[in-house]
Design a protein around this nucleic acid. Structure first.
Length: 711
DNA sequence: AGCACGCCGACT
DNA sequence: GTCGGCGTGCTC
């Protein structure tokens, strides 16, 4: 295999190393040339972390060696590299190219991406890893890596693999078969065919079948996890690495179980809950010169996979795949860049199609599967048809479905909001209660304790601004209040609560009424007898651009938790989104939605970037892009002062919209404005604002922000 | 971010 | 003449 050190390119007599410095300053986001000192010439490698003098002889900065050249273009005298931080080359050329391209696309610094890609070094962990690797080489000297398995062994005997709809539909059929067909250790033929396509660079979108699957270990997972695990194992069997990306750690656990049950115990796990040491240990394993299955959350797309064959996503529409740190790059976008650069395959699997992937499908860039997935039976009990038939928290029909289901197993009820009652109103006049501190809406997170939903202040001495009343009344049903009602309504039944604060990963197959907020539904052994979806109208009333899309994802994901012979009941609501869900036409709805967004120039039909800062700064930035074809902007409009981010007064924001083809140019120009603003900043800072604090009027860029149109 | 460089006004 | 104000720009 060869250690990372041996594989990485050395100086080979070249005198100059080009280094990317660790710096948050946009003006420093380029390579700096340093002399390679004689004493380091044999040990220095591309990708190593180094310490270099910067600004003056004494001050040192850290950076990564990007490349070696014979001579520098730089006019002045070169300072020498001071130190190697570690012999392990942490930044592979592939990940560097990725970081550079992703940062450029998002108007950000490569260093900010590298901070996501490379965990902080832990000396102990590194020593351990290197010692283990050495022991292995001694025990088993120069062994070539196992020859890549012939795809023909796994899939189509003889002849090139030409996987098509037939292979894919076989995959669907296989995963639709429930418990009885326990996952076998070898990748099945359909997944091997898909893997062969991926390794050849295919980009595929799959809508996963609903329903759970029993692993031969006895564990239950969503059938999607088993299918995804089989596909990743098939990619790995072709001698390539696979990166599996999921929104949260609960999905990750299912995939880990599925991989282990299929005989793949040594997947590299990269998740946000790991300690620094664990992260670095995983990172070093990924860096080894062997193909691996890498399993993780959004930052896993940057893992230093060896011979990357495919990046596989579960549920790419989940908003947590959007990186919250600058430059806010969505994992899906990073994966698209990486797949292109590394000629790897892309696989998007979910129960509901994201508008972004649908756009790629319509462009012909991603290929859609050509068969319908298996779907839970969905029925609609529209309460507007029989409005009086309510029994407690749920319509009478839903109550009967719950009772029916509880006779043979668990029943899931999905509710919109956590806590006791989402809304507090005046007990006398019925007006909405407002917070005295910030005028935000008041709700009951816990029985009898009203607090502001925006700032959290307890409404202890609340007074109605309309009628001067002093009593607060609960309105609406949060998860806790639903549990309270169900305990009365279905007495003797075990009621289980799972919400964002107290998520429950799994429940057993015994009768229980499980109340969960969207996204926090536990997996039930064997699947739920029934899945009841409440509060559709409340979810649809969320004033975001993606309300419909999000609802479909929440509902499809919940419906997928039903047993193959169970059912899903949409207990209320109506309108096009509910109709689409009930009729199993979520993808068709997304297609229409995308068409609407095209007409309105909303993302993802076009890309957006928000440009904010002082009025002059924003004006200067907008001048750089004015007149570019396919580009327009809204605003600038004043930014509301205060709020959670404590925005100072006098700042403005503009929203730039542009065609994807113009993205490179728009990012380059706005980035140029940002660099100019930052470079000229020091003088203006000293004269205009207080020292110490960051300059509030500084230009800020944010590309592809999902929330820009949500108020 | 810091820090040097340089171009105008008041000076031992 | 020269000291030092601060605006400007660079950091290999």
């Amino acid at each position: 295999m060869g250690s990372a050190f041996e594989r990485a390119e050395g100086a080979n007599g070249r005198a100059v190393a080009r280094v990317l410095l660790d710096s948050a300053l946009p003006q420093l986001d380029h390579l700096f040339d340093y002399a390679v000192p004689a004493e380091l010439a044999d040990d220095i490698r591309v990708g190593q972390r180094v310490r270099v003098p910067f600004r003056n002889r004494e001050r040192k900065s850290f950076g990564y060696v990007i490349e070696f050249v014979d001579r520098s273009e730089f006019g002045g005298e070169l300072a020498p590299i001071a130190d190697l931080v570690t012999t392990v080359p942490q930044l592979t050329p592939e990940v560097w190219q990725l970081a550079r391209a992703v940062a450029d696309r998002a108007g950000g610094s490569a260093g900010d991406i590298l901070r996501l890609a490379i965990p902080t070094r832990q000396v102990r962990v590194e020593k351990q890893h290197l010692a283990a690797a050495e022991a292995e080489t001694e025990a088993a000297p120069p062994v070539e890596p196992a020859p890549p398995a012939d795809p023909a062994d796994l899939a189509h005997p003889g002849g090139p693999v030409a996987p098509t709809a037939s292979a894919a539909s076989a995959a669907s059929a296989a995963s639709a078969v429930p418990a009885a067909s326990a996952a076998s250790a070898a990748p099945s033929a359909p997944e091997a065919a898909v893997a062969a396509e991926l390794v050849a660079g295919a980009r595929l979108a799959f809508t996963a079948s609903h329903g759970p699957e029993r692993l031969h270990t006895g564990e239950w997972v969503g059938s999607w996890a088993a299918q995804l695990a089989r596909t990743a194992i098939a990619v790995h069997a072709l001698g390539r690495s696979a990166i599996l990306v999921t929104p949260d750690y609960r999905d990750l656990d299912q995939l880990r179980d599925a991989l282990a049950a299929l005989g793949h115990e040594d997947a590299v796990r990269v998740d946000s809950r790991q300690s620094n040491g664990e992260r670095y240990a995983s990172f070093l394993r990924a860096l080894d010169g062997v193909p691996r299955i890498i399993l993780g959350n959004r930052s896993a797309v940057y893992a230093p996979a060896h011979e990357l064959g495919a990046i596989l996503f579960w549920d790419d529409g989940d908003p947590v795949l959007a990186e919250p740190l600058t430059p806010y790059v969505h994992a899906r976008d990073a994966a698209l860049v990486r797949a292109e650069q590394s000629r790897a395959g892309l696989f998007f699997m979910g129960h509901a199609r994201s508008s972004e992937v649908q756009r790629l499908v319509e462009l012909g860039y991603v290929r859609d599967q050509e068969f319908p997935p298996r779907r839970t039976r969905v029925i609609h009990a529209d309460s507007s048809i029989a409005p009086d038939a309510f029994a407690g928290r749920v319509p009478e029909f839903a109550a009967r479905t719950i009772r029916e289901g509880l006779r043979s197993g668990p029943v899931l009820v999905q509710v919109a909001t956590a806590g006791y009652a989402p809304v507090a109103v005046c007990g006398d006049c019925g007006d909405l209660a407002r917070c005295r501190a910030c005028a935000g809406p008041i709700g009951f997170r816990v029985v009898g304790r009203a607090s502001c939903r925006w700032c959290g202040t307890y409404a202890s001495d609340w007074r109605c601004s309309t009628c001067d009343g002093e009593r607060l009344r609960e309105r609406g049903m949060g998860s806790a209040r639903t549990v309270e009602q169900f305990e009365r309504q279905f007495s003797g039944v075990r009621v289980i609560l799972s919400d964002g604060e107290h998520p429950r990963e799994r429940v057993d197959g015994r009768a229980a009424l499980v109340v969960a907020t969207r996204g926090a539904e536990p997996l039930a052994a064997g699947g739920y007898r029934a899945v009841i979806l409440l509060d559709a109208e409340r979810l649809l009333s969320l004033e975001t651009l993606r309300a419909g899309e999000d609802c479909l994802r929440w509902w499809e994901n919940a419906a997928a938790l039903a047993a193959p012979d169970g059912l899903c009941l949409m207990a209320s609501g109506g309108g096009p989104v509910v109709q689409a869900f009930v009729l199993g036409q979520s993808t068709a709805w997304i297609r229409n939605e995308l068409r609407d967004r095209q007409a309105l120039r909303y993302p993802p039909a076009v890309r957006v970037a928000s440009v904010s800062g002082g009025p002059d700064e924003v004006e200067r930035a907008l001048q750089q892009i004015a007149g570019l074809p396919g580009v327009d902007f809204l605003g600038p409009t004043p930014l509301p002062a205060g709020g959670a981010a404590r925005t100072p007064a006098g700042l403005v924001r503009a929203i730039v919209r542009f065609e994807y083809g113009q993205g490179g140019e728009v990012a380059r120009r706005l980035r140029g404005a940002l660099v100019a603003d930052a470079a000229g900043a020091s003088s203006r800072t000293r004269s205009k604002s207080a020292p110490g604090r960051a300059r509030p009027e500084a230009l800020r860029l944010r590309f592809d922000d999902r929330g820009v149109f949500d108020g």
